[in-house]
Simulated scan of single mutants.
Amino acid sequence: MHKFRLMTQADVAQVLDIQAQCYPARLLEDEATIRARLDSAPDSAWVAEHKNRPCAYLVGYRSVVGNITPLSSPFDIPAQTDSLYLHDLAVDKSAQGFGLGPQLVDMAWEKARAEGLKYSALVSVQDSLNFWKRLGYEVMEELCVNQTANLHSYGPASSYMVRLLG
Rank of each mutant, 00 (worst) to 15 (best):
E31Q: 14
T69Y: 05
R62C: 08
M7K: 13
W46I: 01
S120Q: 05
V59D: 00
L84W: 07
Y61P: 04
V64T: 13
S40I: 03
S83N: 12
V91W: 03
T148V: 08
V12S: 04
S63C: 10
Q80I: 15
F4Q: 06
V139T: 11
E110K: 15
L122F: 05
S83T: 11
T69H: 05
Q103D: 05
P70Q: 11
D39M: 12
D43M: 13
V59G: 02
T69P: 00
P54K: 04
I18A: 03
H87P: 00
D92P: 13
L58I: 14
V59Q: 10
G166A: 10
F4H: 10
R37N: 11
A157K: 03
C22H: 01
L58P: 02
V105L: 15
A32N: 09
D39I: 08
L164A: 11
F131G: 00
P74L: 11
Y119A: 05
F75I: 04
L16I: 13
Y23W: 09
I68H: 00
D30V: 03
G60I: 06
L38C: 09
D82N: 15
G136R: 05
R134Q: 15
Q147W: 08
R53G: 08
E141S: 09
N130H: 13
L122W: 02
L84F: 07
R35V: 08
E29S: 02
Y154C: 00
V145I: 12
V91N: 05
V15W: 02
Q9E: 14
F131C: 01
L27C: 04
A13K: 13
E110C: 09
P102M: 10
Q9V: 13
D92R: 03
S159N: 12
W46M: 09
W46R: 07
C55M: 05
K3A: 15
T81C: 15
D106L: 12
L122Q: 01
A48W: 02
S72T: 02
Y119P: 06
S94L: 04
Q80D: 14
A45S: 15
A108R: 10
R5F: 06
T33C: 14
G155V: 01
V123F: 02
H152W: 00
F75L: 10
S73G: 01
C144L: 07
L143Q: 01
D11M: 12
V139L: 03
A112P: 11
L38H: 12
T8F: 04
V59N: 04
A56E: 06
F75C: 07
A32Y: 07
Q14F: 05
V105I: 15
S124G: 09
R37C: 11
E141F: 05
V91M: 07
L6D: 12
A25H: 14
G116Q: 10
V105D: 01
V105T: 10
A112R: 08
Y119Q: 08
